[in-house]
Design a protein around this nucleic acid. Structure first.
Lengths: 192, 192, 192, 192
DNA sequence: GATGAATGAGAATTCATTCAT
DNA sequence: TATGAATGAATTCTCATTCAT
């Protein structure tokens, strides 16, 4: 097993625990157990519990971005592209349930330097939606693309939380359709 | 000073600290200091730190609900009613910045009994949006009112976070307009 | 029991443990137990184990200095004064066996700021001998008073360690006599 | 490279680290690094960190003894012999600054068996001074040779520490002269 | 022999809660 | 009622030692 295999093992274990219990509620020992390594091993790969946390978020955000970019590459229909972006995001959030919420929730308690790193990741995430909306609404009339992207992201997120809370099965296709159905008319009316 | 005055004092202090530092990051001592009472006094009014937390959320959610109900009472235009509901929510969230997010974030780490209480509050919140949308869209075609309400709530929330992050001034009127502008077309098309 | 009583209790407990086991070998829990308080209580009075250590040394050095100054006050014979100073030092070291050695041993591992504080105490200690020798040897011929004081202090210290190691009973009178017997001729020849 | 070469490498590395940071403050990893070997290699040559420590002291003490014996062999003047012994000790202590102090400081925390071994080394060291004083003071009047030797050793040690603390350059000749100047008269008066 | 990744017992420190005043 | 000193369970991080390569 290579060094980066073990790093991945730890991050995967950390994700399960952090997503379930939040940052403060997750014990390093639990993470180690979940990852199948010893407590001390975690400190060979990361200098602190906080650094495990930040690294995990950065990793996942980058994965999501790569995934979206790869999938919508070459699509020529802006509506299809938006829908696919939303769907990919839903699938990813579902697979990493709760993690990203936990992530940004804890930001204010981290050191300034770590907050900066987290915020960079957060901005990368919103950028995905910004790109998709830009493609769709080239000259928005009255609302900025950023604002529209923020609404879209929030709607996606909260709809998922709602599904989780009610224990509905998450069907990415269906949810993506619902989102697009509600948003598309409003977005299109923004076309200048 | 009456008993309920002191209770209020404690909850107000707790809100400031919880909103800034999250549940785990907030020390009882800090809350006491912020409230201007001694640490021990808090335990005269609440049996535990967790109970302070839950009581605070319940209190604030009830305040928001009363406020919305009072404001939209007697309005006969559904669109105006929706807009006012959104605006009120924005003003309230702004005043209690971060608190409600913190609240629901911590839910999974509380005991089952306390989670039940928190979820009741959460459902009450979504209910506000459900009521407004029901008024607007009496017979939705393909998407449930709950789903639409969840999107709306998520969009409101996230837009606010976006404003905070970018240090834009929060103008409730303007933000409410933006939300309604994007959502209204989609919602109206749902009219069966 | 007043606040300073408890502080004293902790320092007394710490002295026993530090002297017996050194800084690194002493556990905060043991110190607490020895002092008859809970582990957490120590952190009400001192911010860290290191601070307990430094405070203890400072306290004891100040006590020794006061004791010597008080005892030799008013003596007009320099030889008697030197002898009394040596004797007092011996009695004090005996009562606080090993503590001061431990103290200065650990200096290099403390932070710079704490080292400064320790060194101040160390200099205060040597100053006692310097004062006594100055009184005896007003115009030293070839060796500085500081140098002579350092030899005297070292001899006192090591003689005591030697007694401890061999489990001889420590008779301050006798040891003071031995020191003075060996040193006096050499010191007097330094009289310019 | 032979087995004993590597052993020497490790002990030399250990000395630097132990002298600078004490026993508890020295990490096996640092010692390995300083010695230019891997951590695991140390455990091929020594069963534990403690054993590295004790072996180091024994080695150095034996070197010092050999050095003194060799140098004063054949000298017929007892005073010159004493002075040379002191000077050799000073040179050795200077070269191995701090090591021996560290050594005996840690004795109480070692296992009984290891303490015995350390004490044997300590006695060997004092024996050097005892031998020199015996040569000078064949029938001491009132103070035992051991006692005088302990004073001498303490004075040498402390004078060196004093020089270190004040950052004076260590001139073995000069310091040996100062020691002998102060001690000789007292010692000679002990001649029965 | 040599390596250094992995282990896990052990220690310092924190902080919710209690309780004597 | 109100206080805040005292408690000790719980948690993060360290580092001597082992062992597979």
């Amino acid at each position: 097993m290579t060094t980066s295999d073990k790093r991945k093992l730890i991050l995967d274990g950390a994700e399960k625990i952090f997503a379930a219990k939040g940052f403060a509620g997750s014990k390093v020992e639990e993470i180690a157990e979940q990852a199948g390594v010893a407590k001390g091993t975690i400190y060979l790969y990361f200098p602190s519990k906080e650094e495990v946390f930040i690294s995990l978020i950065e990793e996942r955000v980058n994965e999501l971005i790569s995934l979206v970019q790869e999938r919508i590459k070459g699509l020529d229909c802006a509506i299809k592209s938006l829908r696919l972006q939303v769907k990919t995001q839903i699938e990813f959030y579902t697979e990493h349930a709760g993690l990203l919420d936990v992530a940004f929730q804890y930001a204010p308690r981290l050191s300034y330097k770590l907050q900066q790193r987290l915020n960079k990741s957060r901005l990368k995430l919103v950028q995905i939606s910004i790109d998709s909306i830009k493609e769709l609404v080239s000259n928005p009339k009255s609302i900025s693309v950023n604002t529209m992207a923020a609404m879209l992201d929030g709607a996606v997120n909260n709809l998922l939380i709602n599904y989780f809370l009610n224990d509905y099965p998450i069907e990415a296709e269906e949810i993506a359709d619902q989102i697009v159905t509600i948003f598309l008319p409003g977005l299109l009316q923004q076309q200048g």
